[in-house]
Amino acid sequence: MPDITWEAPFCGEGNNCFRIGTDAEGNAYIALNGEEDRPLTDSIEALRTLIRDVKAGKADHLL
Rank of each mutant, 00 (worst) to 15 (best):
M1W: 15
M1I: 12
M1E: 10
P2V: 07
P2L: 10
P2K: 15
D3I: 01
I4F: 05
I4N: 00
T5W: 00
T5A: 07
T5Y: 03
W6L: 09
W6N: 04
W6R: 08
E7H: 09
A8P: 15
P9H: 07
P9S: 09
F10E: 03
F10R: 13
F10T: 04
F10K: 12
F10S: 09
C11M: 08
G12Y: 11
G12M: 09
E13R: 15
G14A: 12
G14M: 11
G14S: 10
G14D: 08
N15K: 14
N16L: 11
N16I: 05
N16P: 10
C17W: 02
C17V: 00
C17L: 01
C17Q: 01
F18Y: 09
F18W: 10
R19Q: 13
R19Y: 03
I20G: 03
I20A: 11
I20H: 08
I20N: 06
I20K: 12
T22G: 05
T22A: 08
D23P: 05
D23E: 00
D23T: 00
A24N: 14
A24L: 12
A24W: 08
A24E: 09
E25V: 06
G26K: 05
G26E: 02
G26S: 00
N27G: 08
N27I: 01
A28N: 03
A28D: 00
A28H: 03
A28V: 02
Y29Q: 04
I30V: 12
I30E: 01
A31I: 02
L32F: 01
L32E: 00
N33A: 05
N33C: 02
G34T: 05
G34S: 07
E35N: 14
E36D: 11
E36K: 14
E36T: 10
D37R: 15
D37T: 09
D37A: 13
D37K: 15
D37P: 07
D37F: 15
R38D: 00
R38T: 01
R38W: 12
P39R: 15
P39V: 03
L40H: 11
T41H: 08
T41M: 14
T41F: 05
T41D: 03
D42P: 02
D42V: 00
D42C: 03
S43A: 04
S43M: 02
I44F: 09
I44D: 02
I44V: 13
I44W: 05
E45W: 10
E45I: 02
A46P: 01
A46T: 07
A46S: 13
R48K: 15
T49F: 04
L50W: 03
L50T: 07
I51F: 05
I51N: 06
I51C: 04
I51Y: 02
I51R: 07
R52V: 06
R52N: 12
R52S: 13
R52C: 07
D53N: 14
D53Q: 13
V54D: 03
V54R: 14
K55P: 04
K55D: 10
A56H: 14
A56I: 10
G57E: 06
G57A: 08
G57R: 15
K58L: 14
K58F: 10
K58R: 15
K58P: 10
K58Y: 09
A59E: 12
A59L: 14
A59I: 08
A59F: 13
A59N: 12
D60F: 10
H61L: 07
L63V: 07
L63N: 12
